[in-house]
């Protein structure tokens, strides 16, 4: 009899907690669309397109490895409450987003699916010829997923976010259209400067630590001469680093590009052996930084890597990004 009371008591407590939390959940809905973005740049784009109709939360921090973001309880809470979940997709976040979506149990996201803003990107590169772990740990069947570092990806992603927001709030379609169009104009203005920077960088040669800057390099006309990782996601081995040192000297590579998450000392030593220097390129926006600022910083860092400066003229000034 004691055991029966114990079991019934446990169920009573469980049921009351469930009812309480259900009523809390019912109060959670609001008019403002809750958007959760996996990466800060995408969060910034969603804010620009959504304006005051959206409240945007972001999961990754500016210096984290995009493939291995550390999840915290607040991420589960925000994802559960979200009306829209935005990720790059293309298997960029596949190590941590599926588990987050499963644990957060958001039926709206489960039904509609996350918004994969990378899907349909027409210029995918480094598509693996064979799908095998012998080709690396970070094998992405659809191609290199780091499209978020391409300067022309901003407008592409903004339009995708606009379309999904319109489907969620049709009555605000005009507002989202206007916000997106205005943002595309600002992107186009900044892109003029990025193209002038790219003209200076054209023909330069780099080695990447991890192939996350391929799209940025392509946009700037920079030649990619390999990676310190022997295969995507596999830490550098001594033999491969020795091989890359020879290759860097033979090819005249002066810069090794690395993200903040990669080991600084290893990248510096490997670059020095090849007669180059390691340069940290931002992979995500920092706090308070817009996507346009972020792209500015990425381009300027590339200029500094070769001690280049953009000739002064009207386009050398940053445009206000209000």
């Amino acid at each position: 009899m004691f055991a029966i009371r114990r079991i019934l008591g446990a169920f009573a407590v469980a049921s009351s907690l469930a009812l309480t939390s259900s009523s809390v959940a019912a109060q959670e809905s609001s008019e403002v669309l809750r958007v959760v973005a996996t990466l800060p740049p995408q969060a910034g784009l969603a804010s620009q397109v959504g304006g005051d109709a959206v409240q945007v939360d972001c999961i990754a921090r500016g210096k984290e490895n995009l493939h291995a973001v550390r999840l915290r309880p607040s991420h589960m809470v925000s994802t559960h409450r979200a009306d829209l979940f935005v990720q790059v997709g293309l298997a960029l976040e596949h190590a941590w987003v599926p588990g987050l979506l499963e644990a957060s149990r958001n039926s709206r996201i489960a039904n509609d699916g996350p918004l994969n803003i990378g899907t349909g990107w027409p210029n995918l590169v480094e598509i693996p010829l064979t799908l095998s772990r012998t080709e690396g740990v970070c094998v992405h069947p659809l191609g290199n997923p780091h499209v978020n570092l391409c300067p022309s990806f901003g407008a592409f992603a903004a339009r995708k976010i606009r379309d999904r927001l319109k489907s969620l709030r049709p009555e605000l379609s005009e507002k989202f259209d206007a916000n997106c169009a205005a943002y595309e104009v600002r992107i186009a203005e900044r892109a003029k400067r990025w193209k002038r920077i790219a003209a200076l960088l054209e023909g330069k040669k780099v080695v990447q630590y991890h192939k996350e800057f391929s799209y940025l390099c392509i946009a700037c006309g920079i030649e990619r001469c390999g990676a310190l990782e022997p295969k995507p996601g596999v830490p550098p081995t001594p033999a491969h680093l020795a091989k890359m040192a020879v290759k860097m000297r033979d090819d005249g590579v002066k810069v090794v590009l690395r993200g903040a998450w990669t080991p600084l000392r290893l990248a510096q030593d490997a670059a020095a052996r090849g007669g180059a220097k390691a340069v940290e390129i931002p992979v995500m926006t920092e706090k308070g930084e817009t996507w346009l600022d972020f792209m500015d910083r990425a381009h300027e860092t590339l200029l500094e890597a070769w001690d280049l400066t953009l000739p002064e003229d009207g386009l050398n000034m940053k445009l206000a990004d209000d």
């Binding site: 309480t20 589960m76 809470v77």
Partner: peptide, 20 residues
């Protein structure tokens, strides 16, 4: 087993389970 989780504020998740 039945399990349920609830947000508490913006930064906390509470969860319980009961199994037979």
């Amino acid at each position: 087993q039945y399990d349920h989780w609830s947000p508490i504020g913006d930064d906390t998740a509470f969860r319980f389970s009961v199994g037979l």
